[in-house]
Amino acid sequence: MSTALAASLSLAAAAQTAERPGRTWASTCAACHGSDGKAQGAIPAIAGRDAEQLYRTLLEFKNGQRPAATVMHQHAKGYADDELRRIAQAFAAQSAR
C-alpha cells in the first residue's frame, strides 16, 4: 500500500470513528460550513484546522470577543466549553481538502 493511500485511508478512518457525540455535534455545523467543514463560497472552511486554534476561536465567539460576528456568537453561546472543544477536535481530524 502506498504511503499516500495509507494516509488517505487513515484520514477517512478518523472521520469514521472519531468520538461519536463530538462527530455528531460537529455534523450540525456542516449545513453552513460544508460536510466535514469543507465549505464553499463566503463561509469559512474549517476542515483540518488546528484543534486548539478552532477551540480558541469558538470561545472568543462565545465570550463576545469577536465584534464582527454575524451569527457565530449566537451559536457558540449554546455550547459548554467542553462541547466546543470536542467539536473543534472533530473538525481538526478532517483533511483540509
Binding site: 487513515s10 477517512a12 478512518a13 470513528t17 481538526a92 481530524a93
Partner: peptide, 13 residues
C-alpha cells in the same frame, strides 16, 4: 486524538 486516529484506522480498514 492520536490514539483515536490509530484505533480508527483499523476498524475502517
Amino acid at each position: 486524538s492520536r490514539r483515536h486516529f490509530l484505533g480508527a484506522g483499523a476498524s475502517f480498514a
